[in-house]
């Protein structure tokens, strides 16, 4: 059986769906970061598959930039998370309501 582009796109959809479920049901910010990593990886699989099946390198380029953005997002996000944890002792989303009017 031949594996085509659609197989990879369906896999990408399933992984993206799992990541979104994680984003919606997680309360702990660290585990929410994990779910965003899953989202970015799901999109990367789609990019690499399209790059392979159309003989085009643009998909791989975009996957590289997605990886770079994920790394920098993580560095800044984790720094902010550590500062928040030092101040408040918790990283639950529900406690971050200081901007409520």
């Amino acid at each position: 059986m031949e594996i085509g582009l659609n197989h990879y796109l369906v896999l990408s959809t399933i992984l993206f769906c799992i990541g979104l479920i994680g984003v919606m049901r997680r309360k702990n910010l660290l585990l929410l970061f994990f779910a965003t990593e899953i989202l970015l990886n799901a999109v990367n699989v789609g990019f690499a598959a399209i790059s392979h099946y159309y003989g085009d390198l643009t998909g791989q380029m975009f996957a590289f930039f997605v990886i770079a953005i994920a790394a920098s997002e993580l560095a800044v996000g984790l720094g902010l998370l550590i500062v928040w944890h030092k101040r408040h002792g918790t990283i639950d989303l529900d406690t971050m309501t200081s901007m409520r009017g």
């Binding site: 990408s12 959809t13 993206f16 769906c17 479920i21 919606m24 049901r25 789609g46």
Partner: peptide, 28 residues
């Protein structure tokens, strides 16, 4: 242990599936 948000499970799964299908539509 990590506490979870106890929202409506069907809404969560449904919204996730819709968003994922939209991603594939954008790709395809």
């Amino acid at each position: 242990e990590v506490k979870e948000k106890n929202g409506n499970k069907y809404i969560v799964v449904g919204l996730s599936a819709i968003a994922a299908v939209m991603v594939v539509a954008i790709f395809s």
